[in-house]
């Protein structure tokens, strides 16, 4: 075999699998979305009819708006808190830092279904621990899941809690990559801790911060489980966000036409984020 092709044979199995599972379905989905769908099967050519129906759907703007609010809030809160935590852990030193890191990452290594379920039981349910403590203090019961605003706030909180561990680990790795001499030199020159953070640490963390922001945006924008287990999309539609909408369209109301159209729209939105990610990742070959 020509030496030029030796390398290719080692990547063929991996690419065959990725083509089957990740790449071809996208093309098939685009093709499928151009047909009228009946009982899960494509019937006659429909052009962009499915997309037009989707855009005409009066519930879509609301869902879109809620998704943006949820993702924006969850990502920005996670970034701010994880940055503070990472800086704190970095200062703790090797052993204690590792211990804290392990505690921080616990909700992240547990599945979203289980983590959300346990969070709901302990902190939200009226006979759960937090609910009982509130009652013992003689306060009125709080039903966070009954009001649209507090349900959304809770959804954001659970999402931050679940994903912050990942952000902390990545930012911590970024902090460890900054040579200590920089900070040392600044300190000798009389810089205050805030100045050091503002002028040295923060600018040098720009790339990991942006990458974390993109990954968090992707994972929040696409989470099905968090609202499904925490609120079921309620009260009313208050916490119904895009991925849940896609799944309900596909598997509850069996409207596969609009589900596919919406899923593909989300997919191309994801691709834009991924392109930003790849640009930042400055891959090396």
């Amino acid at each position: 075999m020509h030496p030029k092709y030796t390398g290719i044979q080692y990547i063929i199995p991996a690419f065959a699998l990725l083509t089957l599972v990740l790449f071809s379905p996208v093309f098939y989905g685009v093709w499928f979305s151009l047909f009228h769908i009946q009982y899960g099967a494509a019937t006659t050519f429909a052009g962009v009819q499915n997309y037009q129906d989707l855009l005409a759907d009066p519930t879509l703007p609301g869902t879109l708006q809620r998704s943006i609010i949820f993702t924006g809030a969850a990502v920005s809160i996670t970034i701010v808190l994880s940055l503070a935590l990472a800086v704190w852990i970095h200062k703790l030193g090797e052993r204690r830092g590792f211990l804290v890191q392990m505690v921080v990452i616990v909700p992240w290594i547990i599945s979203t279904v289980v983590a959300t379920l346990l969070f709901r039981w302990v902190f939200v349910n009226d006979i759960g621990l937090a609910g009982s403590i509130v009652k013992m203090m003689g306060l009125d019961e709080i039903h966070l899941l009954n009001s649209p605003h507090s349900a959304m706030a809770l959804l954001i909180a659970v999402s931050v809690w679940k994903r912050i561990g990942y952000a902390v680990i990545i930012l911590l790795a970024g902090l460890k990559g900054i040579p200590d001499d920089y900070e040392e030199a600044a300190r000798i020159d009389g810089a205050t801790p805030w100045q050091i953070f503002r002028r040295i640490t923060f600018p040098l963390l720009k790339t990991p911060l942006l990458l974390v922001a993109i990954v968090l945006t992707l994972s929040n924008l696409n989470t099905v489980e968090t609202p499904l287990v925490l609120t079921g999309g309620g009260p009313g539609d208050a916490t119904r966000i895009l991925p849940m909408d896609v799944f309900d369209r596909a598997f509850i109301t069996y409207d596969l036409g609009s589900a596919t159209a919406l899923a593909l729209a989300m997919f191309f939105g994801n691709v834009l984020l991924v392109l930003a990610y790849v640009r930042l990742a400055k891959w090396k070959t």
């Binding site: 092709y5 030796t6 696409n222 596919t260 790849v278 070959t285």
Partner: peptide, 30 residues
């Protein structure tokens, strides 16, 4: 080998892409 760089780019792009399982799964299911 030919297309090594674009192929590796595709791998890198697929890492965050599989986070978007919700969007991928409908076409995948079909």
């Amino acid at each position: 080998f030919p297309f090594r760089q674009p192929l590796f780019l595709l791998i890198v792009a697929s890492i965050p892409l599989s986070l978007g399982a919700a969007a991928l799964l409908i076409p995948n299911y079909l």
